[in-house]
Design a protein around this nucleic acid. Structure first.
Lengths: 229, 229
DNA sequence: AGGGCGATTTGACCTAAGTCAATGTTAATT
DNA sequence: AATTAACATTGACTTAGGTCAAATCGCCCT
């Protein structure tokens, strides 16, 4: 598949006329990363940004003690690392492939030139960045205003989709990664999952399968209106 | 002072040619809020966004138990509430004047039409949104990877400016607000300030005056390389 | 000066969640 | 099937920081 086709189906550039896509394709570089390979480092100068073609990556920070806080997972069609391209600041976090992953790399200077020539390229970008901001607002709320059971409940409800009472799903990340996404550690996550099962809120096979048994209970937990004993 | 002059010196629109400023001014509405008055509510439909002319406002979330997490303070020239104008989502947080404040209100639909006609308006916006994202990344890092003394140390260093060893300054917000900004409560903040003074990291008059005595020590605290006993 | 009110501080206490260490489990490889 | 390594769970313990309640301080008013 050609780069231009990947661009055409990306979040950022879908719907753009062909002239624009061609311009973008002409500055695009395809790169591949293996599972667990680093894509960029916190503090490193940004030279451009990325769009996932296939595979998945995570964006995360690390404390001096080694605790990891995951900020995002991104998959096919999603851009990442765009903000530093506009602020000129260094990357504020790490990026790493969590599967074998192909990406398109868009060099910052060339991209900024394009966008200045054709500012309409900026419109989708505004929407994407705005969505990211909304998402961060949520993360901050969760971290500072909810306890871990509440965060987990919110995650489960979100992952289970908004259907009726009996939705089930499979985690698409390891429990360790989930713990990091929720701003906690695997031990704590494990204990809370156990409690949720005991209280009949969810069912689980001890691995990645989770079935929501009591959606209302989870919602109360997520809203801080209930505790997990 | 005319609205157009305020627009011309705002972060978002400074440097724009007069034609654009006039277009913006023609859709702008001036509004005034008293200290402690609400500007918008979480969950409320966004009908537009704001630029501070004078005074100051805060953006914050509230937990069911009433704990408040401040996300931003904004002052003259700074825009707020822009993201929902592009995502179409409701406001994700509350906004409230912390002083008597004048703002410019830009109705969403009119603004989006303008920006579509003249996408070059979008460029500054990209930069602003990108900066906000970077800032949120920091907040998340602080909340999940640093303890409260580390967050406070980071705040003090930042507020003290990057000068030599002996900088002093005055908090521009109350300690209660500072606690909320740091994701904690006034009692905890108070205890930590006391400890910092006792350990010779800072000096304080018990009110808003703070003098940095040991910048290196504060930095170590902020980086998690030192604890506060 | 004295009253009053909010903001701040201090103390005693409690609890969520982290640490450390041991034990199970699962999956991957030979 | 046996071996290993990564992942996950469990238990005992510690601790940062929150809660609640009681001073205390600072400041604005008469």
């Amino acid at each position: 598949m050609e780069i231009i086709e990947h661009l055409a189906v990306s979040q950022l550039f879908k719907g753009l006329p062909n002239v624009h896509l061609e311009g973008l394709a002409s500055i695009s570089i395809k790169k591949s990363y293996q599972k667990d390979e680093s894509i960029f480092f916190e503090g490193r100068e940004s030279t451009g940004f990325f769009i996932v073609i296939s595979g998945r990556i995570k964006i995360y920070k690390i404390s001096p003690e080694g605790k990891e806080q995951i900020l995002h997972f991104f998959g096919p069609g999603e851009p990442f690392g765009e903000a530093p391209a506009f602020t000129g600041d260094p990357f504020p976090a790490y990026a790493e492939a969590i599967e074998d992953t192909d990406v398109i790399f868009l060099p910052k200077n060339e991209f900024v030139s394009l966008i200045k020539k054709d500012p309409s390229l900026a419109l989708n970008m505004l929407v994407i960045l705005s969505h990211r901001l909304q998402k961060f607002t949520n993360i901050i709320e969760n971290l500072s205003l909810k306890e871990v059971p509440g965060r987990l409940a919110a995650y489960i409800i979100y992952s289970g989709g908004n259907e009726n009472d009996a939705s089930e799903f499979s985690l698409d990340i390891s429990k360790g990664q989930l713990a990091s996404l929720l701003g906690t550690i695997p031990e704590t996550l494990s204990r809370i999952l156990t409690k949720m099962v005991k209280q009949g809120l969810i069912d689980s096979d001890g691995r990645r399968f989770i079935k929501i048994l009591d959606r209302k209970g989870l919602e109360e937990l997520a809203e801080g209106k209930r505790r997990l004993g």
